[in-house]
């Protein structure tokens, strides 16, 4: 799915000669000292149980550097549910792992990270169990202004009535996670049941930008997430899809606040979100009908 903004621009190009120029080389940016970044969380998945839970710690890098993100290998990571706690050990490239923890519905999990003498803490809740797919399938779609021609994965799913639900979608192509920094993400990759509580939805596409070809293995996940994580993702997708277009929805860029708090030095904030989610998933191989 190309977004409204892209379309608008296209139309405007027709009337006036609107134009985008790459100015990467003309810009010099002020750099700030690196901050701690968390990328990951706990995943409950009854369909394909997660044997090892994984969380990655990195730091920020200069915006236009395009080098790999520096990872953090010397932190101490613990996750607790209020009763028990689990230590996550660094394996490689900033990944911290634990194979004993089994996330449960109704629990609140707190992560504690000790790094460079400062302690960071963040909490998320796993409240609602994710509803299952009623039907999981794919369909061929012709090319449109917004999307390429190809096979699109879809599912039908029924929202539980009288429960607040927040959803997030993931798509995998041949077992590899795929995503696009698209302005539409904030409307497509996450959704709340505010306007369809208790209803069945038909033909939901987990990602409107990604299509498959014959022979591809397609996996889609529907995630149940907490409301604070939903709000975080909304801001994240809005900003990563920002095309700087002043015509439509272009909020002032600002640092996105995650859920980690630095207990020792609050101004040295960490970025990213420690999440706890419940996963529904299904896989299909695309074949000629």
């Amino acid at each position: 799915m190309k977004n409204i903004i892209t379309i608008l621009l296209t139309l405007l190009i027709i009337i006036v000669s609107s134009c985008e120029t790459d100015v990467t080389n003309d810009i010099s940016l002020v750099e700030t000292p690196p901050r701690l970044v968390i990328d990951g969380g706990l995943e409950r998945n009854i369909k394909t149980p997660v044997t090892t839970q994984q969380i990655r710690l990195l730091t920020t890098a200069p915006f236009l550097s395009n080098k790999d993100f520096p990872f953090v290998s010397d932190a101490q990571v613990t996750i607790s549910d209020g009763t028990n706690s689990w230590v996550f050990e660094h394996t490689n490239n900033g990944f911290y792992e634990n194979s004993d923890i089994l996330p449960e519905i109704g629990n609140t999990y707190t992560i504690t990270i000790l790094w460079k003498g400062e302690t960071y803490q963040g909490t998320d809740m796993l409240l609602a169990e994710v509803p299952r797919f009623d039907k999981f399938y794919y369909e061929f779609e012709e090319e449109t202004v917004f999307a390429d021609e190809g096979y699109y994965v879809k599912f039908d799913t029924t929202d539980p009535i009288n429960v607040q639900n927040f959803y997030h979608y993931r798509l995998f192509k041949n077992n590899e996670f795929v995503t696009v920094p698209d302005p539409g993400n904030s409307q497509v990759l996450i959704v709340s049941d505010e306007f369809f509580d208790g209803k069945q939805r038909i033909g939901v596409k987990p990602n409107e930008d990604i299509f498959f070809e014959i022979g591809d293995i397609a996996t889609a996940q529907q995630l149940s997430i907490s409301e604070p994580y939903f709000d975080y993702l909304k801001e994240l997708f809005t900003q990563t899809g920002n095309l700087g277009n002043p015509i439509v929805g272009n909020p002032p860029p600002a640092s996105i606040r995650g859920n980690l708090i630095n207990l020792d030095n609050s101004s040295n904030r960490a970025l990213g979100y420690f999440y706890v989610i419940d996963v529904e998933e299904d896989t299909v191989t695309i074949t000629e009908n």
């Binding site: 993100f69 995503t179 002032p252 860029p253 640092s255 996105i256 970025l271």
Partner: peptide, 21 residues
Amino acid sequence: TYPTGRYTQNGLVVADYNNRN
């Protein structure tokens, strides 16, 4: 507002900012 840094989240590169405008 120009970014002061970048990081990764959910497979996407995210910009970090400091001062508005």
